[in-house]
């Protein structure tokens, strides 16, 4: 579904050029869920932004469903196939647009018909219901906003969903709801996920495989089972695992 080969992303020009991502390669088969983990500045979100064309200073080969993409421009078909959910639901909804406006504009842009019926369906699919249709962002909680953002991403009926820390701005109980929703949607619609997160347990819960990143490079690729068992090959991944777990030890064994 997604194939990234030798991806480099940089910002600025020499001598101030910053290489945010360096020769990163990975592939995600149809229907799988792939995690990118790492600390802040490791370049994990930058990869998503390069795939979607929000950043155009990259080189390498990105293929979605065997179609190569280039530069900043993306085709209509690309926008239909690939969508993204952002980290902060407080920043990803236009403050003056109602839910109705957000979804109808999106459906219109994606060339959909029967917009009223589809809005109702989308709101049901993300567990909000049509009662929420005419609300503005300030009338929604963080979790509800993220549901709207997910509904917006689903409007085009994409096959690949890029999730950029979708729950890190939310409370844990709301995180559980959103993660369950994402898992259900993936099963029902056969979606492929690429999920960026700094939280190893969230990635272990959501993903089949994952890559550990550090300073723009993939340090190690492993599957979720190895992550749970603490079987990391590289030293950095092991360190990251211990650091994440060290404040669990006290009571998880009890």
């Amino acid at each position: 579904m997604l194939r990234v080969e030798n991806l480099n992303v940089w910002f600025g020009f020499p001598p101030d050029r910053v290489d945010a991502v360096q020769s990163v390669s990975f592939q995600v088969p149809q229907g799988q869920s792939y995690g990118l983990v790492g600390e802040s500045g490791s370049g994990k979100s930058t990869i998503l932004r390069a795939i979607t064309g929000l950043i155009d200073t990259w080189s390498g080969d990105i293929r979605v469903a065997d179609q190569a993409v280039a530069g900043r421009k993306r085709s209509r078909a690309f926008h239909k196939a690939v969508q993204m959910v952002f980290q902060d639901p407080y920043a990803s909804l236009h403050p003056r647009h109602s839910v109705d406006r957000v979804l109808s504009e999106t459906l219109h842009l994606q060339g959909m018909h029967d917009i009223d019926r589809r809005i109702a369906q989308l709101l049901d699919a993300v567990g909000l219901g049509s009662g929420f249709r005419f609300r503005y962002p300030h009338q929604l909680s963080g979790g509800q906003r993220q549901r709207v953002a997910i509904a917006r991403a689903l409007a085009a009926e994409p096959r690949l969903l890029l999730l950029d820390e979708p729950t890190s701005a939310l409370d844990v109980s709301v995180q559980a709801e959103i993660l369950n929703l994402l898992a259900d949607l993936r099963r029902e619609r056969g979606l492929t996920y690429v999920m960026v997160s700094h939280d190893l347990s969230v990635v272990a819960h959501m993903c089949d495989r994952l890559a550990v990143m550090r300073q723009g490079r993939i340090v190690e690729e492993m599957d979720a089972a190895s992550l749970r068992a603490g079987r990391a090959q590289s030293e950095y991944a092991r360190e990251l695992l211990t650091a994440s777990a060290s404040y669990d030890r006290g009571w998880s064994g009890a």
Partner: peptide, 16 residues
């Protein structure tokens, strides 16, 4: 802002 990025990803053009 992210909401502009989100609209771009839906294929919204600069005029819109």
């Amino acid at each position: 802002a992210d909401y502009i990025a989100a609209a771009r990803l839906q294929g919204a053009g600069p005029l819109r």
